[in-house]
Design a protein around this nucleic acid. Structure first.
Lengths: 353, 353
DNA sequence: GTGAAAGCGCTAACAC
DNA sequence: GTGTTAGCGCTTTCAC
């Protein structure tokens, strides 16, 4: 790798001039600039980011910690962050916490040594404590909030989304609506749970805690919780399910299939977060959709914007709306309008394009 | 951030000794070592990776360029790479090429400035040329091969997988088997196409080029190609489709649904690459499955292993097997055993767990 | 076993 | 406008 010394020598200038010519062209005579540029070009010179960062104490690097890159929602968050970072000349260090606080802490330690200019994190239950190890780093929390005082947050309206989802089921005539909820130390799970309760309350329906089962956001958790809820004797079994995240929804749908329940004839399902899977599933799933890409993009842009500024006393709170997308996994409960006889799965309607 | 100077001062030693105590404990007296460790602990010292890398000319960083992190297959590759890197104390810089050679080149330029210890890349059509800009960097090509002479490659047996897939359809009685094939400047697409031809040839079936449509690996390409193939008049329309990647398979399935074709009654489908979508689709899809995680893991481990060694004349070629997973999207052609009357979609069998 | 000193490649003060 | 020089934080000779 040629260094700036090589470039300077070839252009017959000092390294300082070469450096200026390349990073502050206006501080240098036109002829000199051109000579330096030609030399750099000829040698295929690429500045050593390490040396520059060490000197400037500024790496133009952003740390990103998502919970699980295999989850399409998180992959989309990452994509949004990366595209925005790219556009502003920042490089992203991506880490997975796999929802494990310990892994998240390891990622932060590694990151710390790389002196990122800022950090974007989709929090786990440990994040609030872990962020204390990075006192001077600008932090944006993405999708979930940890409670750390100094973080800017970029989230969706989880409460509103959950209310809308639950209300949709209520309006269809459901009275026994189960919920599969995420870990109660994760903000999104708490908010969605609260929304569910609020919608029931608004409709003057009782909140039955036995209809609410917890999971850890994984497909398996959704499967197990659904088996348990749907295994209840007829009459106490929920006629509809609101499920707190995308992965658990998959599990719940598989459980319903295994029990040969017709969706939505025997059971209505609303998931949180849209995906191709939800769209092409049969029947296509009614969901609360989230603007995942924009969430990631905005998190990154807010972070970069804040870098110049002094730290405000109250960090920004960005909240994006969600949207109810009604497809074919929700309908009136069986007792209402339809016979309880088992029916074949309906043919899914053509995918709209 | 405390520096090693701070640690040294607190432990009343020179920076040299502090450095040794932390990275080469055996070169230092036990008492000294303990004092330094205590000081480091107390200050929350984290070595500055930039300074270390600059000095050692070795960053313990691996560049990873995948085609599309939103594609679950590529996300899984990335996960495999990252887990392995993590385990060996390496940090991964992840980039997306989005299948665009220009983006790939940009990623490589950025990467170059960060002096990665090695590079893992899922090639685009431009990779072979681009790698010439990184002459001394150990490179592992992942999933696809670019033709670059110096790269170790970690791939699956695409030829064998395609032969198996096509033979499976032939054995079911299909004679008009269409293929939707990827870009013919991507090695996997070439190999899968060749496998398809080879299997036809082995069965003494003619190769009909009008039954083979190209796509650029995207869902939309699969959709369009399938519409075209399935729009042919009955009698010349293929009774089965072998599709060259996961995304295009989604598009093809949606096209078949739109045409209200029963799968597998009217049309058998085999996809390349398994996924949760393929498993939970109705009907569950017959696929050639690939060990994506292992592919990523092995790519990383090979790269790290090679770092010490001198560059061998002939780089390693690692090839992992694929596996035919027969589910319910393949069956005998309609003319053979079943009526051509439209039938309702069959109820998908319970998901095995 | 430990310390002094040099230097990785770069940029920013400071001269001129 | 340009050159000289110092120094970012670290590791590594080379002395002792």
């Amino acid at each position: 790798m040629p260094s700036i010394q090589d470039v300077a020598r070839l252009a017959s200038v000092s390294t300082a001039t070469a450096s200026r010519a390349l990073s502050r062209p206006d501080m240098v005579a036109t002829g000199t600039r051109e000579r330096v540029e030609a030399a750099a070009q000829q040698l295929g010179y690429q500045p050593n980011v390490l040396a520059r960062s060490l000197r400037q104490k500024e790496t133009r690097t952003i740390g990103l910690i998502v919970a699980d890159i295999l989850n399409p929602f998180h992959a989309m968050l990452a994509k949004g962050v990366q595209d925005a970072a790219d556009q502003h000349g920042y490089t992203v260090f991506l880490f997975n916490s796999d929802e494990e606080p310990a892994k998240e802490l390891r990622a932060m330690d590694t990151l710390r040594g790389h002196l990122p200019t800022g950090l974007i994190v989709a929090p786990t239950s440990g994040t609030r404590a872990h962020l204390k190890t990075l006192p001077d780093l600008p932090v944006v929390e993405l999708d979930r909030v940890s409670g750390h005082a100094g973080s800017t947050t970029v989230t969706v309206d989880n409460l509103g989304g959950a209310i809308t989802a639950t209300r949709h089921l209520i309006e269809l005539g459901h009275r026994r609506i189960g919920m599969i909820v995420g870990q109660q130390d994760i903000s999104t799970a708490i908010d969605r749970h609260a929304g569910y309760r609020a919608a029931l309350h608004d409709a003057q329906l009782p909140y039955d805690p036995t209809l609410v089962l917890p999971g850890h956001h994984r497909e398996d958790d959704g499967y197990r919780a659904a088996r348990q809820l749907l295994g209840r004797p007829a009459g106490t079994r929920p006629t509809a399910l609101f499920i707190g995240n995308n992965e658990m929804t998959v599990g719940a749908v598989l459980a319903a299939r295994e029990l040969e329940l017709d969706i939505p004839g025997d059971l209505s399902i609303v998931g949180f977060d849209d995906s191709r899977w939800a769209q092409t599933m049969s029947p296509p799933l009614t969901v609360i959709s989230q603007p995942a890409y924009d969430l990631g993009r905005l998190a990154c842009e807010h972070l970069i914007n804040e870098l110049g500024q002094p730290r405000p006393v109250t960090p920004a709170r960005v909240q994006l709306p969600t949207e109810l997308v009604v497809r074919h996994s929700t309908g009136p409960p069986a007792g209402d309008a339809l016979s309880r006889a088992p029916r074949p799965h309906s043919v899914p309607p053509p995918h709209s394009r």
